[in-house]
Write a protein that binds this DNA or RNA. Sequence first.
DNA 1: GAGTATACTTACCTACCAGTAAGTTAGTTT
DNA 2: AAACTAACTTACTGGTAGGTAAGTATACTC
Lengths: 192, 192
Amino acid sequence: MNAAVDTRSRIIDRANELMMQRGFNGFSYRDISEPLGVKNAAIHYHFPNKIDLIAALIQDNHELLKKSTSRFMENGGPAREQLEGLFAFTAGQCKAGRPVCVGGALAADYDQLPDEIQGANQRFMNESAKWMTRVLELGREQGEFSFEGDPASKARMILAAIQGGRQLYRIQGEAYLQDLFAQIRRDLGIKS
Amino acid sequence: MNAAVDTRSRIIDRANELMMQRGFNGFSYRDISEPLGVKNAAIHYHFPNKIDLIAALIQDNHELLKKSTSRFMENGGPAREQLEGLFAFTAGQCKAGRPVCVGGALAADYDQLPDEIQGANQRFMNESAKWMTRVLELGREQGEFSFEGDPASKARMILAAIQGGRQLYRIQGEAYLQDLFAQIRRDLGIKS
DNA sequence: GAGTATACTTACCTACCAGTAAGTTAGTTT
DNA sequence: AAACTAACTTACTGGTAGGTAAGTATACTC
């Protein structure tokens, strides 16, 4: 079973990478199987079809998000730190050749996908927005951030900007991204 | 020649639509030829390969942008109006099933594309940013907008947010987009 | 030690993809 | 009226896509 679990998770990892790099239609089973040294049919064994593979991949991302945010909710660290963590994570993903997050990669192919995946993706997005809202609320309470209006609305705006920024990173380079982060800090009344 | 020009532009139009809906890898020649009632080879006649088709498509979009922005530069209308124009255009595109702009659609496949297309896309993006910066500067001069910091930086932030917003529209629906626009207005110090 | 489950591989299938070469047809030029 | 050109169609190709059925090796169970 050890080898199996390993292969399965390696397939997901590789698919995740390809998904973020090229989107749903931009990669084939061969792009996964070849570098992993397995056959196409091995992928079909674990995930009967491509939709199943994507579903597992979203699930995986979702759990990762849950894990990292729940840790934050527990120890309740400074909001600024959390925001910077997101920035660093985003920049890191971009540099690692992952210009769009799973949700973004799927957006282009969204209505080709079955309901269950659309739902999973939506839940993922909602959870992200909820987390960001929490960070903003906390930051405002603690006097780290100062901004006007609804934190939830501001959170969605920031997430949209980061989503767009990731997409524009490829075309505009890293300076664009860093500039975007700086502007977000400014909009949140962070000085430095 | 009349019929030819017509077919050529109909191919571009359809490709444009497909590109925005599904991205570079998400559509085939058949998706273009079939609804147009022509054969695949007719597309290859006008555009020898898919890259040529995409190049023509970007060119087309670029000219449309130039035309609409130059008109603005000439009559120098109120900045607020221009911003609302962009919002309306974006919402319209989304509703018409075009959730990402050409640049965004290409982002996912960016490094698979030849240099000339990458360059064309980059120029397109830069021109958009320049236009937005101009709108913000004008709005600030005319007292319509009030915001801190560099207009260019703010412009890039807004464009990134809209880019992201378009992507999230599919998942989150129109309310998300309208909420995003409202937040941008708030960030620009527009009351109403 | 026979039976069963897991985790694959081998071999194959049909459909489709972008692309091409060789016509065909209508209009235009000389 | 002959030659030429633009705008296609017909008919095809090699390659790849996702997917499947049947076989095999290994490990675990009773």
